[in-house]
């Protein structure tokens, strides 16, 4: 029978001390939605769960940084992200995507940190944070480091985090001058996990694309940044022909996987279409500059 100790530290320092072990049956717990499924199915049998939700409130807050960026505490719920007024103007893509990400009950309890640390490629939030050029702040008992969101993932359900290391925040640089879009494609039902997630941010000046981030997830083993597509876009005027080429390049380069949602070759087609459509959508909706 499932049996474990639930520890409830009141400070992050205490939590890190409790997690400072190589024992994989000791795990941090925040929203718990994913871990609970793993525990119910017997995939994970914890000895100790360290409940992070009782640590200092600042770790759940969303703050504007002095340089215009945003710090999102790892314990912020997805719901708080959805309704945060600062993010609503700074990164409207979040408010647009979140109402259809998982479901209300999951968003009420799932935390930004857990969503990233789980390493599940079928999540909508990581690609969005990656295209917003987010940095993951990770801390363990002996120090802190920053990892670009797109570098967090080592493989299918795998991250580069060390044992005992937890995510404490995600830092977003200022989004001024950038426009972002996230397109979620499901193939079975609307409430399904994404079959393909495409997140794209563009910075444009005088009608030219100066910089971009092109992120693909769900169809791939892990979240993937398509730098070749970004290079193709760099310095180009945004127009339909360019976007078609970008989509084609994305489809050629992306390494998709077969699963219950569809074949790799079908997903490759979807990636191409969705990259092109995401770019067109930015052109239509984005403020530009």
């Amino acid at each position: 029978m499932l049996d474990f100790e639930l520890r409830r530290p009141t400070s992050l320092e205490d939590a890190l001390a409790m997690l400072d072990t190589d024992d994989p049956s000791v795990r941090p717990w925040s929203g718990g939605t994913a871990l609970m499924l793993m525990m119910k199915s017997g995939v994970f049998e914890p000895s100790v769960l360290v409940d992070l939700t009782g640590v200092e409130e600042e770790h759940a807050s969303i703050r504007r940084l002095e340089d215009g960026g945003t710090s999102i505490g790892a314990l912020a719920t997805l719901a708080s992200l959805q309704f945060d007024p600062h993010l609503a103007s700074e990164a409207p893509v979040l408010g647009q995507a979140l109402p259809r990400l998982a479901n209300v009950r999951v968003r009420n309890v799932a935390r930004v940190g857990g969503c990233l640390a789980h390493g599940d490629p079928h999540m909508d939030l990581p690609p969005i944070l990656a295209c917003l050029r987010g940095l993951v702040v990770a801390r363990k008992a002996d120090g802190e480091r920053r990892i670009a969101v797109e570098q967090l993932f080592a493989g299918y359900y795998e991250t580069v985090l060390d044992p005992g290391e937890i995510i404490t925040a995600v830092e977003l640089p200022t989004q001024t001058g950038w426009d972002s879009v996230y397109r979620k494609t499901t193939v079975r039902t609307h409430h399904d996990w994404p079959t393909v997630g495409v997140a794209i941010s563009l910075r444009r000046e005088a009608g030219l694309i100066v910089e971009s981030r092109v992120i693909v997830s769900a169809a791939t083993e892990k979240l993937t940044r398509l730098e070749a597509v970004e290079n193709l876009l760099a310095g180009q005027p945004s127009n339909a022909a360019l976007f078609t080429r970008a989509g084609r390049t994305a489809a050629e380069l992306v390494e998709t996987i077969d699963d219950a949602q569809g074949s790799a070759s079908y997903k490759r087609v979807l990636v191409g279409v969705e990259v092109r459509r995401a770019l067109s959508q930015i052109l239509e909706e984005g403020s530009g500059s």
């Binding site: 079975r188 039902t189 409430h191 399904d192 219950a260």
Partner: peptide
């Protein structure tokens, strides 16, 4: 959307995670 998938006789999608019934948006 609905279909039971089998691998060597084993149902591989015996849950709502992978057996998708219509929701309110569908």
């Amino acid at each position: 959307s609905e279909e039971m998938h089998f691998d060597a006789g084993q149902v591989t999608n015996a849950s709502f995670a992978d057996y998708k019934i219509p929701g309110i948006h569908d």
